[in-house]
Computed example of a mutant assay.
Amino acid sequence: MHYVNSKSILSSKNGMNLYRGCTHGCIYCDSRSEIYNMNHKFEDIEVKKNSLDLLKKELLKRPKAMIGTGAMTDPYIPLERELKYVRKSLELIYRYGFGFTCITKSDLVLRDLDLLKKINEKSKAVVQMTLTTADDDLCKILEPNVCTTSRRVDVLKALNENGIPTVVWLCPILPYINDTEENINNILDYCIDADVHGVLCFGMGLTLRDGNRQYFYEKLDKHFPGLKDRYIKEFGESYSIPSPNERELMEIFKRKTEENGILNDTYEILKYLAEFPQDSIQSKLL
């Protein structure tokens, strides 16, 4: 871990990253890609020391909106247990009447259930959870340093029981690893059981580019001997790595979500996540 001072904390679209880097160890993580110009070891978490002061200043001058985090770094990395930057940011978001959404794989989000409920009562809070495999043993290989899929489903259910809407990211789907009809059916059954609002799926596959490709291949050699050579032969240096089962898997995804009233259109889900309830009582500053 190391500290830096940042010039700003919110993007033009109200995205927020309190940390940079991650220790979850997911073998497919795109955030390792060289394109993001990270000048430190990925596991050496960069903490934006002045982020909370910056957030307070920016919330005071911005129109009410949804504040989002987790697109680059899971906000609920283990370090958050100690530093509590996310929790403190939620306190500010609640105080100044903004909405909140995050993408995570961690059950640590339940620590902040009290604040999520308060925000949701005033405006809107949505938790997005990534699910890649219904097999907990495989999950421990793909995402070794974070809670298992079954635990994440427990989190989704707990959020639903407390009135917090949820969205599942069904990605990535790795060719010859988790791209099976059984896996997709089982994950969707989890989503149905947890009464999620929507499931985001950008196709059945993953993306690879310099930085994350090398790390991914290193892990394939360790856990799936011989599979790296198959990837290189079939996909070369391609950015987009589609599953050969994509058509069948997408049919299952669309049919099962539609039959169970789960939103599955990417545009509509992203619109829902970004929409701030203008008539909410949080339009007044406390």
Rank of each mutant, 00 (worst) to 15 (best):
Y3W: 06
V4C: 03
S6V: 06
L10P: 07
K13F: 13
L18E: 01
L18H: 02
Y19L: 08
G21F: 03
S31G: 10
S33H: 11
E34D: 15
N37I: 06
N37A: 13
N37P: 02
N39Q: 10
H40M: 09
K41Q: 10
D44L: 10
E46M: 15
K49V: 12
S51T: 11
S51A: 15
L55W: 07
K57N: 10
R62V: 03
P63N: 14
P63G: 11
K64M: 09
A71V: 01
P75M: 01
P78S: 07
R81Y: 12
Y85R: 02
Y85E: 00
V86T: 14
Y94I: 03
G97F: 07
G99M: 01
G99V: 01
F100E: 01
T101P: 00
I103V: 11
K105M: 07
S106R: 02
S106E: 06
V109A: 10
V109H: 01
D112Y: 03
D112M: 12
K117L: 10
I119F: 11
E121G: 08
A125Y: 06
V126K: 01
V127S: 04
V127P: 04
L131M: 15
T133I: 05
A134V: 03
A134W: 04
D136F: 05
D137L: 09
K140P: 04
I141S: 03
V146K: 01
V146W: 13
T148S: 14
R151H: 04
R152H: 09
V155I: 10
L159M: 01
N162E: 08
N162M: 09
G163Q: 10
I164L: 04
I164S: 02
P165D: 14
P165Y: 13
V167P: 01
V167D: 01
V168C: 07
L170H: 13
C171G: 12
Y176D: 14
T180D: 08
E181V: 08
I184V: 11
N185V: 11
I187T: 00
I187K: 06
Y190R: 07
Y190M: 15
C191G: 08
C191S: 03
I192R: 04
D193R: 15
G198I: 04
V199Q: 10
G203E: 09
M204E: 05
M204I: 14
L206P: 02
T207S: 13
L208A: 09
R213W: 04
Y215P: 08
Y217Q: 08
L220R: 02
H223I: 02
K228V: 06
K228H: 13
G236K: 01
S240M: 10
I241N: 04
P242M: 08
P244W: 11
E246Y: 08
R247L: 03
E251K: 14
E258K: 14
E259Q: 15
I262F: 03
N264K: 15
T266D: 09
I269Y: 06
E275I: 02
P277M: 05
S280L: 07
Q282L: 08
K284F: 13
K284Q: 09
